[in-house]
């Protein structure tokens, strides 16, 4: 029992991290149908910027460094949209989804390059928010930082739910994701929506990077795998679905931990992708993805 619980705790902690990254994918996908391969780099920026603000020149306290780092990440997200995505989308004749994917890949390489040159290639650790002493629950140990990740993830979900359900701007974003043309016709500024989705998604990614840095450590290339796993979680939950991203992330984390615990740790990483293949065969729209019809 204690063993199972320990695996479950590990899975939940890691799963919550995946879920936060997956949410970022879902937001941008909804607004633009772009799969943003630079999402993982937002996570890196969040973590690395906080480390740099605390340790480097500024010497800011953690409480001040966190919002600053989230803001920096959001600015990078806005800049990415303004400087790279928008010029491509606004070209006469529009642009294809593949082109946008390549642009985000280019951005991810560029961002990694910049971090590597400015902040170095070493890995860094942030202190845990409320100490390192683990909680003992029925013989299993839980890192307090894991609770922070889970808690903030839930909070984010609640805020997003409120934002999309009850806020004018949120509703406009949702409308755009369903039908861009119709949204434009009723007077929604879809360009602003796209910009906002990148800013919001980047802020989320940055937040994820900060929350997880005490657990995962942070490094200029930490975003590659987290981005990939977050993407997998987003697919698993149904691309574009917010609750799906959360469920997908947690399910992925749990599946990995249990597979590593009871089957083989050597093939743990394959588990996520085997599940994805299986889901695509059986239920291609993901766990919570709605059935979509394609417009002709």
């Amino acid at each position: 029992m204690a063993e199972f619980l320990q695996f479950a705790f590990s899975g939940l902690t890691v799963g919550a991290i995946y879920a936060l990254v997956a949410l970022g994918f879902a937001l941008i996908y909804n607004a633009s149908h772009v799969i943003n391969f630079a999402q993982g780099e937002f996570v890196t920026i969040g973590g690395m910027a906080t480390v740099a603000l605390i340790a480097g020149g500024g010497g800011l306290p953690l409480l001040l460094a966190i919002p600053t780092a989230v803001m920096i990440t959001a600015l990078v997200g806005l800049a990415l949209e303004k400087l790279a995505i928008e010029p491509a989308v606004r070209r006469p004749g529009g642009t294809s989804v593949v082109t946008l994917i390549i642009i985000t890949i280019g951005a991810s390489i560029l961002i990694r390059g910049v971090i590597q040159v400015t902040l170095g290639k070493d890995f860094h650790r942030l202190p845990a928010f409320s100490g390192e002493v683990p909680l003992d629950i029925l013989g299993a140990r839980l890192q307090p930082q894991g609770l922070w990740v889970l808690g903030v993830t839930l909070l984010v979900v609640a805020v997003l739910w409120w934002f999309f359900g009850y806020q004018r701007f949120g509703k406009a974003m949702l409308a755009t994701s369903h039908n861009r043309l119709a949204a434009q016709l009723v007077g929604i500024d879809t360009r602003l929506i796209l910009l906002a989705s990148f800013g919001l998604s980047a802020a989320l990614g940055g937040l994820a990077g900060i929350l997880t840095a005490p657990i995962t450590l942070t490094k200029y290339d930490v975003g590659i795998m987290l981005g990939l796993k977050g993407f997998a979680a987003a697919i698993l939950g149904g691309l574009g679905s917010g609750p799906g991203a959360i469920v997908g992330g947690i399910a992925l984390g749990l599946a990995e931990a249990l597979a590593a615990g009871y089957i083989s740790s050597a093939y743990k990483d394959a588990v996520a992708f085997i599940i994805i293949l299986a889901v695509l065969f059986v239920r291609p729209s993901g766990l919570l993805g709605g059935r979509t019809t394609e417009r002709v």
Binding site: A88, G93, T95, T99, I102, G106, A107, I109, L110, G113
Partner: peptide, 20 residues
């Protein structure tokens, strides 16, 4: 050297924007 990745990423983005 260290600026290799920055240049590569920038080229990729640039081509895609100006020659989609």
């Amino acid at each position: 050297h260290d600026y290799e990745h920055i240049a590569f990423g920038a080229v990729l983005i640039g081509v895609m924007i100006f020659m989609p």
